[in-house]
Design a protein around this nucleic acid. Structure first.
Length: 283
DNA sequence: GACACGACCTGACGGC
DNA sequence: TGCCGTCAGGTCGTGT
């Protein structure tokens, strides 16, 4: 899926066409994605003005002037694209509808936001804005990695005594929000930490070293517009470019780029998911 | 409680 | 060409 950098890129792409504008109509083309849509979702969205477009972890949050917030998750293959915005930077023409266009928002001003998700692992829900942090999808999520609450002492404390591999721990959204398979691989490679190491057995210094690396990797990926592998597109349909900067992810058999390492990137499976790492320089 | 794994879906790709 | 198996950016629920 889109991980945090991809979701942030999508949010930034959608904001000019959504923030401050009224949803004049919502086409809901099926009853559910991962879960059933909330009752009367189309009715509750129609006529609502989007007062702010935010992000929490991998969720896009559209605050509405009705007192509710639309919660959107892109799952593994979700895309949100803008078309027909005469004031924006996007294609003026509306493209022909495609298979898997599940929800379409028609915005005041002519823009159309299309949510397309072939695998339907995505989700949408509505919840009261005032108590959004208590929403069941949000309440267990850990701190934002780019915020102040994610710091060295927090991570040291959170990983203390953990038996799970550090790779698995960093994927755990309760520990830190927004990291997915790609960026955890990249972070551990940059940190020189073997993904199989037990999280609780790492020294405090090594755990602490992860914090600035997590921030750097995510910030660089956002700057590059995210990573485009298979399904991901930015809101304007363009590709992200961070995949060209991958040091480990999807590079099995390729030489490790770490200076003077000379190792070869390997692929293993942890918790059912591919891990890419260099057995020579990640210890 | 902690952890591993299956399930949810569709599509792309490689091998035969 | 076409079929089949494998894999994919996530995460909830279940079993151990």
């Amino acid at each position: 899926m889109p991980e945090l950098p991809e979701v942030e890129t999508v949010r930034r792409g959608l904001a000019p066409s959504m923030e401050g504008r009224v949803i004049t109509r919502a086409d809901v083309n099926r009853p559910d994605l991962r879960w059933p849509f909330p009752d009367r979702m189309a009715d509750r969205l129609t006529g609502a003005r989007v007062t702010a477009l935010r992000r929490r972890s991998k969720y896009v949050l559209a605050d509405l002037d009705t007192g509710e917030t639309l919660i959107i998750h892109l799952g593994m293959s979700g895309r949100m694209t803008v078309s027909g915005d005469p004031l924006g930077q996007f294609h003026h023409e509306h493209p022909a509808p495609e298979k898997h266009d599940h929800v379409v928002f028609h915005m005041e001003g002519g823009a159309r936001i299309t949510f397309n998700d072939p695998r339907r692992f995505g989700a949408m829900d509505l919840g009261p804005t005032a108590t959004l942090e208590d929403h069941w999808l949000i309440k267990t999520i850990g701190p934002e990695p780019l915020g102040n609450a994610f710091n060295e002492s927090y991570l040291v404390e959170k990983l203390r005594g953990k038996n799970a591999p550090i790779k698995t721990a960093l994927l755990d959204q309760r520990i830190v929000a927004g990291l997915g398979n790609i960026y955890v691989c990249e972070v551990l490679h940059r940190a020189g930490i073997n993904p199989k190491r037990k999280a609780g057995a790492l020294s405090k210094a090594r755990v602490a070293s992860l914090v600035p690396i997590v921030r750097d990797v995510l910030a660089e990926a956002i700057e590059a517009g995210g990573s485009s592998l298979r399904d991901y597109r930015q809101a304007d349909g363009e590709l992200g470019y961070f995949q060209h900067g991958f040091q480990a992810y999807d590079r099995e058999g390729h030489p490790c780029q770490t200076p003077d390492c000379g190792g070869t990137i390997a692929r293993i499976v942890q918790s059912g998911r591919s891990t890419f790492y260099c057995p020579k320089c990640q210890r």
